[in-house]
Simulated scan of single mutants.
Amino acid sequence: MQRLQAFKYELMPTGEQQCKMRRFAGACRFVFNKALALHKERYEQGEKKLGYAGLCKLLTEWRNGAQTPWLKDAPNHPLQQALKDLERAYTNFFARRADSPRFKKKGQGDSFRYPDPKQVKLDQANSRIFLPKLGWLRYRNSRDVLGAIRQVTVSASGGKWYVSIQTERNVDQPLPQVTSAVGIDMGITRFATMSDGNYLAPLNSFRRHEARLRLAQRAMSRKTQFSSNWKKAAHVQRIHSRIGNARRDYLHKATTAISQNHAMVCIEDLQVRNMSRSAAGDTGQPGKNVRAKSGLNKAILDQGWFEFRRQLDYKLAWNGGHLIAVPPQNTSRTCPACGCVRAENRQTQAKFACVECGFEENADLVGAINILARGHRVAACGEPVQSGRSAKQEPTEAI
């Protein structure tokens, strides 16, 4: 089977190479924004949307034009990839998978991509990589790159530059080394409660850095934007980068351990966007309990539930296992002993006590047991997976 995998490393560029990378990222951002503005203008005038081929013709004119001759300094392929990203964004928007494309801002997600592997040279023995118009760049070689290179992406985060090398290689069809199955109930007090009784404590990386982030944002607000003092005090981005890195590291370690120890993992098909939707309302219909709901939304988003599910999905596939998402309705209100489904069964956030048979247990553990049972039914009978509940229907069911 074909396996696509990305290997990410921190780059160690020279000062000149850093300047070039900032210019290349800025050129890609300029092309993306210019094409997006053109799309919006044509839409307002009732004209047909230009496709990728039409935008590439305009890109040639922009590179050769008198107004933007500096676009020639950037490699051509990354500029074309910026147009492909815009085309993909519109495709996802029309398919209702994403919101409307927005203009990119300087310093937020700066990156550019080389799609042609023939233009890239990798020297792993000397920990360096050759990229067009950048030359040889050294990188922190933490592990070997496996497979044939397909594309290379250079990105900036927290004041550092990184290179992500996507590869493709043939691997044998994996067979699971274990036969156990587990159900996982996601929450806030307990990040992940498993049906075998074990659970993972939450990391809460944002909460750990919240006070420090608040001070940094307060200091930044007192300075003139893009001034010398503003640049010296630009700690906000680095703190956000540290928060994200800590969360990803925690999720990778957790999902790797779970995927290696279980052949089947059952989780809830949670609609995180609905669960974390704002309750502020508007001037006509102001929301209720806005402060409490805001704190709940912040705690939900701090856990990284969707990323946890995404990592479990591909890591289980790599190890020969599979992931099953089950309907989340009443998972922590159903008694696993007698099957009674009552809202009164969950007396508090952590306590489950069946009103019919008197069975008592932790509510998250009960949810994990019921999730595993539903996963077995889905695997055996093909029971359809329904869409998850909204936050308005059951705002605290999965917490």
Score class of each variant (00 low, 15 high):
9 Y>C: 05
11 L>F: 01
18 Q>F: 07
19 C>T: 14
26 G>R: 04
26 G>P: 01
28 C>N: 02
28 C>T: 03
34 K>H: 12
34 K>Q: 12
37 A>F: 04
41 E>H: 01
41 E>I: 00
45 Q>K: 14
50 L>H: 01
54 G>M: 06
54 G>V: 03
55 L>V: 01
65 G>K: 02
65 G>C: 09
73 D>L: 09
77 H>M: 14
93 F>T: 11
94 F>I: 07
106 K>W: 04
108 Q>T: 10
116 D>F: 00
120 V>S: 13
124 Q>L: 09
124 Q>C: 10
128 R>Q: 13
128 R>G: 05
135 G>W: 03
142 S>E: 09
143 R>K: 12
144 D>I: 00
145 V>P: 06
147 G>Q: 06
149 I>L: 03
152 V>T: 10
153 T>M: 07
153 T>G: 03
156 A>M: 04
162 Y>Q: 00
166 Q>K: 04
167 T>P: 04
169 R>H: 07
172 D>C: 08
172 D>R: 09
176 P>T: 03
179 T>P: 08
182 V>C: 06
188 I>T: 02
190 R>I: 02
193 T>R: 12
194 M>P: 08
197 G>W: 02
200 L>Q: 13
202 P>D: 03
203 L>M: 08
205 S>A: 15
209 H>K: 15
224 T>C: 08
230 W>R: 14
235 H>W: 06
241 S>H: 09
241 S>E: 15
243 I>P: 02
244 G>R: 08
247 R>F: 02
249 D>K: 08
257 A>H: 15
262 H>R: 13
264 M>H: 09
268 E>T: 03
276 S>E: 11
279 A>T: 01
286 P>G: 03
288 K>T: 07
293 K>V: 01
295 G>C: 11
297 N>C: 08
300 I>L: 13
302 D>A: 07
308 F>Q: 04
309 R>K: 14
311 Q>G: 07
315 K>C: 12
318 W>Y: 04
318 W>D: 14
319 N>E: 09
321 G>R: 05
322 H>T: 05
332 S>C: 06
339 G>T: 07
348 T>C: 10
355 V>L: 13
361 E>K: 07
363 A>D: 01
367 G>V: 15
373 A>H: 10
378 V>A: 11
378 V>Y: 03
384 P>N: 13
387 S>M: 12
392 K>V: 13
392 K>Q: 15
393 Q>I: 14
395 P>I: 01
395 P>A: 08
395 P>R: 06
